[in-house]
Design a protein around this nucleic acid. Structure first.
Lengths: 96, 96
DNA sequence: CTTTTATATCGTAAGATCACGATATTGAAA
DNA sequence: TTTCAATATCGTGATCTTACGATATAAAAG
């Protein structure tokens, strides 16, 4: 677990917001056709952010590299979901 | 409590290290003449970091602005200690 | 007063981050 | 195949961060 990468990923309000949305996908991404158990596809996350597609893609890549989310490609879609194991492990080690 | 400022303050390994040292001042700053209950004076923190005096002073200012530490000037010395109330409040709200 | 000590602030350069539009890639559909 | 839709990557400015040495400030010592 890369503690520094996780702290840096969390040091941005857009990325924290995305993580919060992914915590309750049924609330924030109810419009998704495919089952939410797969995760949420990038396009829907894009639409929630007031940012360009490429910018949101980069934020998702940062969260992914930090291990806070996982991705799963199905056809032309890429589904993202929280990696609860890593998130919990981070919280547990976080003595501060 | 400025959540964003706290996350940004934590997104740096030197500042996390300083916070960790301040958690056990009797271990890391035993050489201090004045009582550790006051806090640890800036100079001793400087010496622990492999960084210039001005850089460490800036890191302490960042932690201070985030509310993670408090400072207390006595004569020519400035003592820093963790603000446990703010730290705990941050942890408590940190749902992630 | 002048000097010394402790610390903060200033100016600046290098590097990282964030956002964008344009383009590439990948898979599905026509 | 050609086209379209979803997503990633590239190139590029603008801004933020980190570090430094030099200088300023403030209090104590001489």
């Amino acid at each position: 677990m890369d503690i520094d990468a996780i702290h840096k990923a969390l040091a941005n309000p857009v990325r924290r917001q995305i993580l919060a949305w992914l915590k309750e996908p049924e609330v924030y991404f109810a419009e998704q056709q495919h089952p939410l158990s797969l995760g949420v596809c990038a396009g829907l996350i894009d639409r929630r952010c007031a940012l360009s597609q490429s910018t949101v893609s980069a934020h998702l890549a940062t969260l992914l590299k930090a291990g806070l989310i996982t991705s799963h490609r199905v056809g032309q879609w890429n589904y993202f979901k929280r990696d609860e194991a890593t998130i919990q492990a981070f919280i547990d080690q976080m003595t501060l």
